[in-house]
Design a protein around this nucleic acid. Structure first.
Length: 564
RNA sequence: GCGCCAGUAGCUCAGUCGGAUAGAGCACCGGAUUUCUAAUCCGGUGGUCGGGGGUUCAAGUCCUCCCUGGCGCGCCA
């Protein structure tokens, strides 16, 4: 779109006296594609010229008409001057662009040499993965792939909750009600943890016992460490199976425990800077004069460290190790106070990069209790999604091609549905979990995208002609074809905007638009049996659409299948 | 109580740096398949954009007050 937009900026600049950069900020897109490719609102000029906007639009349209090359028409529509690109040239520039059929379509190098560190997923050890942990995992891994597609070097960090008072509780539960073999059984460990909380209500003394175990653990007590290691290993094995199923990988599994020996140094530095004080026996940093009325706690009264201490050490370590341009924390919005404190303390400690840290927050998932009142485990959700996908496939067995591996397709469709239901809305929104909504296959869903992709794959297989990258695409006349070309040209913009705002839903919405445009134009843009040159042009268009869909879907964590 | 966030169609959500008649999906009603995947498409019903006030040529969007909901507010993470 660049050269076309540039011409619009130039020609408008010549006739309005406005700077091209100024025009760039107001030049938008008409609400409907058939109204043109660029829209120039004439309101601002109306003020200076003391003329009615529609009149200005008319006059500009006349003046500009003779000077267009890549643009083909300037049409006044009320207070707007709408510009139309030359569709032949436009189609050529988009569909014959180098890389239009390459796997890395949409990629850019603007992030080259710049590092984005992303802390995501970060589940707590010794607890099963439930639906509530899914959002950070899905959003974080998607942001990773979005930034990577723009050329950034990404560092994915799983900051496992593998250190803290909860291990004291876990060990207390094990000592009182468990046995040796429970150490290798995550379900047993979870039951023990649940039981601990029940018992603690009856006997608050257990909490002291738990704190003491964690204190021992921090001091390197052999028994405490041995138990902790075993529990950690059991959990990690389990998590890795889940991540494998979701095709998610991390560059580092540096959990909280990794920073155990780096904690004293951080606390000492804060001390030396005179930031700390003792309050009710605990070591704190008062932040009241910085607009945060809750102090940050660095040490409990018994000397043990807290979440804050470990996050401070982690942030500094990450900065040294990765030299990041941005450090993203993909963590629920419930923890925003913690991150405000964390970033403020880093700033007070003189870390100039504190401003490069960002809490990429997301809303709460509510109502994930099953009928029994237990949380829904991720495996349960994935299995149910797969089961429903299989059911759907069985019901439509006569309307789809034969598949080599039905089960793999059902699995991919199920995961696509789940991922998309999360990525399709702004991350800030809270939502109530519902099976219906989380696993839906029709309309604005992951499977809808998959279907668009698979339909094009079907055309390529069956249309009877070979794909020609040099096909004469100036023959594409239909509005639907132009809509698709226009959407293709905006793919990188969508990635860029999604990265700028750390908002995967922007990419999801873009892909829905593309898939919808494909489905709408599907009948009109028939390939098989059409006149040879027309067929070749359409096939190339569809192949590029498929390529963009595949690229974007992979970024969202959705498998682009050839058949479904 | 204080702080942060959210409120758009019956439901779930879009809505670009303030700009054209506020758009999708689900649900509901009516259509479309001798032809490349009907997990699809086309049409219809459905809106005081939570409420009041303000700024502006122009407000769903910005400011302000209020209402409702969610979350958070020292030794959990």
């Amino acid at each position: 779109m660049n050269v076309f937009r540039q011409e619009a900026l130039d020609v408008l600049s010549r006739h309005t006296g406005m700077e091209p950069s100024e025009i760039d900020t107001v030049l938008s897109r008409p609400p409907k594609p058939e109204l043109g490719d660029f829209a120039f609102p004439c309101f601002q000029l109306a003020k200076d010229l003391k003329k009615a906007p529609p009149q200005i639009a008319e006059e500009l349209a006349e003046k500009i008409a003779g000077e267009l090359e890549l643009l083909t028409e300037a049409r006044a529509l009320g207070p707007y001057l709408n510009l139309f690109v030359n569709r032949q040239e436009f189609s050529r520039s988009v569909l014959h662009a180098p890389g239009a059929l390459a796997e890395d379509i949409g990629k850019s190098s603007e992030g080259e040499g710049r590092v984005i560190a992303i802390d995501f997923s970060s589940p707590n050890i010794a607890k099963p993965f439930h639906v509530g942990h899914l959002r950070s995992t899905i959003i974080g891994s998607t942001l990773y792939r979005i930034f990577a597609s723009l050329g950034y070097e990404c560092v994915g960090i799983n900051h496992l909750g593998d250190w803290g008072t909860q291990f004291g509780k876990q060990i207390v539960a094990l000592k009182h009600w468990g046995e040796e073999k429970d150490l290798e059984d995550l379900d047993a460990l979870n039951d023990l943890y649940v039981r601990y909380h029940e018992e603690e209500r009856k006997d608050p003394g257990l909490a002291d016992e738990a704190r003491d175990w964690f204190r021992r653990q921090e001091q390197g007590d052999a028994e405490a460490i041995a138990l902790w290691e075993k529990i950690r290993e059991t959990s990690l094995d389990y998590f890795k199976v889940i991540y494998e199923r979701l095709s998610i990988r991390f560059d580092h599994y540096t959990g909280e425990s990794f920073f155990n020996d780096k904690m004293d140094a951080i606390v000492d530095r804060a001390d030396e800077l005179g930031l700390t004080s003792v309050s009710e026996g605990a070591l704190v940093i008062d932040l009241e004069e910085h607009g945060i009325d809750t102090p940050a706690l660095l040490r409990k009264a018994d000397g043990a460290t807290l979440y804050m201490t470990r996050d401070l050490a982690a942030a500094c370590h990450r900065h040294e190790s990765y030299k990041f341009e941005k450090l993203l924390y993909v963590v629920g919005t419930a923890q925003s106070l913690h991150f405000r404190q964390l970033f403020k303390v880093l700033e007070l400690m003189g870390e100039a990069w504190a401003g490069d840290c960002m809490h990429v927050n997301f809303g709460l998932v509510q109502g994930m209790s099953s009928r029994k009142g237990n949380v829904i485990y991720l495996e349960e959700l994935l299995d149910e999604a797969k089961r429903r996908a299989q059911e759907y496939m069985n019901a439509n067995v006569d309307k789809r091609p034969e598949l080599e591996d039905e089960e793999a397709v059902a699995e991919a469709v199920g995961i696509a549905a789940i991922f998309f239901s999360d990525l399709g809305k702004q991350r800030i929104k809270d939502y109530n979990f519902s099976w219906e909504r989380a696993i839906s296959f029709e309309g604005d869903t992951g499977p809808y995208l998959m279907n668009a992709h698979a339909r094009i794959a079907g055309i390529i297989r069956k249309c009877g002609i070979e794909l020609d990258p040099d096909a004469d695409v100036t023959l594409l006349q239909e509005q639907s074809a132009h809509d698709l070309v226009s959407l293709i040209s905006r793919y990188t913009d969508a990635l860029r905007e999604a990265a700028r705002t750390c908002e995967p839903s922007i990419l999801a919405a873009y892909l829905l638009d593309l898939a919808r445009a494909l489905h709408s134009g599907y009948k009109e843009l028939r390939v098989k049996g059409e006149e040879k040159k027309i067929a070749a042009a359409r096939l190339l268009l569809l192949a590029v659409v498929k390529n963009v869909l595949a690229s974007g879907m992979k970024i969202l964590g959705i498998k682009p299948l050839e058949k479904m």
